[in-house]
Amino acid sequence: MIRISDLSYHHGRTQVLDQVSLTIPKGGITALVGANGAGKSTLLSLIARLTPLQTGSIHVGDLDVSRCPSDMLARNLSILPQNTEVAPRLTVRELVSFGRYPYHKGQPTSEDHTKIDAALQDFDLTPLADRVLDTLSGGQKQRAYVAMTYAQDTDYILLDEPLNNLDIAASRSLMQTLRHLSQEKGRTIVVVMHDLNYACAYADHLVALSNGKIRAEGHPSQVVTNGFLSSVFSTDAHVHHVDQVPVILV
């Protein structure tokens, strides 16, 4: 469970988050949606302490994010930021290996290597394992970054727009992997995404943010309605239903 209370955040004069209080249930996939600039990335970076807290508090499980030691946080929570651009020349395998750093601290054990191989396997990266990142397509790179986060093997996983650059097969495969992680291993996964259809199809819980405030929260089939689209996204798209799952035709 992630507990956020009275969280506010300013960038200079801009109020990015305004008194956000939110509980993200343990286990399952929570989709975080909202218009561009709504504050989604800021919220994730605050949870992962990439950005220092200004006001309010965040607890991840039993850990108080503002206090706990960084290596302990890194063994409990991993994050894939929105803009991943790694400058060093690394192969896919090397990149994924760094996901194990919080455990091996520089000396990977055989268990680390097993987890690295598994991460490569689960994201169809085995054939690309020895390729340098610069030589990969955007989608292949994105998969490598997700695999690195996955190799970190944490109970809480935050992903900021992981579907960027992914084709439909890779997107579905990623979402299915996430579903498997949440259902079989009880991981708590928070995903920022723009495609509401993916959110409706895979998420157990949906949180909508706009102008730094929570506008709606609940199961996607209850939250995603025509009224929701117009109030949160200011668009007049229509919601249809297929097998009770909301579907938006664009």
Partner: peptide
């Protein structure tokens, strides 16, 4: 090497 990947990557891997 991790610091070379940037501040964000460093913090998320638990580095000071």
């Amino acid at each position: 090497a991790i610091v070379g990947m940037g501040r964000v990557a460093s913090i998320s891997l638990g580095l000071n």
